[in-house]
Amino acid sequence: MANDAPTNPTRLYKGRGAISNLAGRFVDQVSSRESDGWELELEPLQRIETLAIEEKAKSIIATNNSPDIPFSQSINAYRGCEHGCIYCYARPAHAYMDLSPGLDFETRLFYKPNASELLEQALRKKGYQCSPIAMGTNTDPYQPLEKDKQITRQLLETLQRHRHPLTIVTKSQLILRDLPILAEMAQDNLVHVAISVTTLDNDLKRKLEPRTAGPAARLRTIEALSNAGIPTAVMAAPMIPAINDSELEKILTGASDAGAIQAAYILLRLPFEVAPLFRQWLAEHYPERAAHVMSLVQQSRGGKDNQSEFGERQRGTGVFAQLLRQRFKIHCRKLGLNERKLALDCSHFTLPPQTGDQQSLF
């Protein structure tokens, strides 16, 4: 599929995080817009609309054995994410479809209409071992497209029907649409939810995560989930040096006051095409601070933009990363966060009926 937005020049698009359609690493040739000298400036760029593309997936559960990830199974109902978070480490995945990790990632979205059917098939497979399924590990399961497509809702109903445990990470208050289902599952210890809160500053939120719920709405979502009896955590992620790291304690305090009982954080990750996209974003929004931010990032990443080693990619190394880690631990201890180790219950799982199974008359 060809890129509809230009690779160059960079410019702000209202409601979008990336400011270019930076070419993916697998593209051999790229095109750019250049003035021929006859015009004072380039012709205006057209507004970029969101395009939803149907994808008939062949499987739905992804597995991993990474030692620094607390789950072995995950589901992503969507590819790409309209939230437009500039730092999103899932952006490079669009390069595998010959699309840009930049604006394409936010505007060329793929949804899987057969997701719940595939989930039923996966749970029915002989030898399936029940373990919590994580949702929201790559793209947000409650991004704006979910309001129309309801793929996440269908998956949730399937998991509830078979009493299968799951975890959810989201930035969206749309999750409250499914509050009755989640509350019922929580009664049997089948669900935990984490709400990502990157900043409490509305202006910074609009720059970093243009199509996400505001900070106050996210805290209200934590409160609503907690009041419904759903164990809820806050994800202070990512922590970006000299951009939002000063807010760490305020984010934890606000979430704790709203009812969160668990907390986690991730230091900014800049894999593959995310690094140049983030540098473009810095140059546009914080030009006077850009060099300092990237210096701190590299000090925390072994002199590079990114570290991919297990155990270091989430937390980083060096003085800044160590101080951030200590600040997090101290404030969590002060607030009483992470005092209980939560484990979901897999013993309630009921296998979907097999073809030819004798149905009970009672």
Rank of each mutant, 00 (worst) to 15 (best):
P6Y: 06
N8T: 04
G15T: 07
A18I: 00
A18H: 12
S20Q: 07
D28N: 09
V30S: 07
S31N: 04
L42W: 10
L51I: 12
E54P: 03
E55G: 06
T63A: 04
S72H: 11
S72A: 10
A77E: 04
G84A: 14
I86W: 15
P92N: 03
H94G: 03
G102Q: 06
R108W: 07
S116G: 07
L119M: 08
L119I: 09
R124S: 15
T137I: 11
P141R: 01
L145E: 12
E146L: 07
R163A: 11
T167Q: 12
T167E: 10
T170Y: 02
I175D: 05
L182Y: 15
E184Y: 04
H192M: 08
S196Y: 03
D203W: 14
L208N: 04
P210M: 13
A216T: 09
T221C: 04
P231L: 12
V234K: 02
A242N: 11
I243G: 13
S246M: 10
G254W: 05
Y265Q: 01
L268F: 00
H285G: 10
P287R: 12
E288D: 05
E288F: 03
A290G: 12
G302N: 10
Q307S: 12
E309C: 06
R315W: 06
T317W: 03
G336K: 00
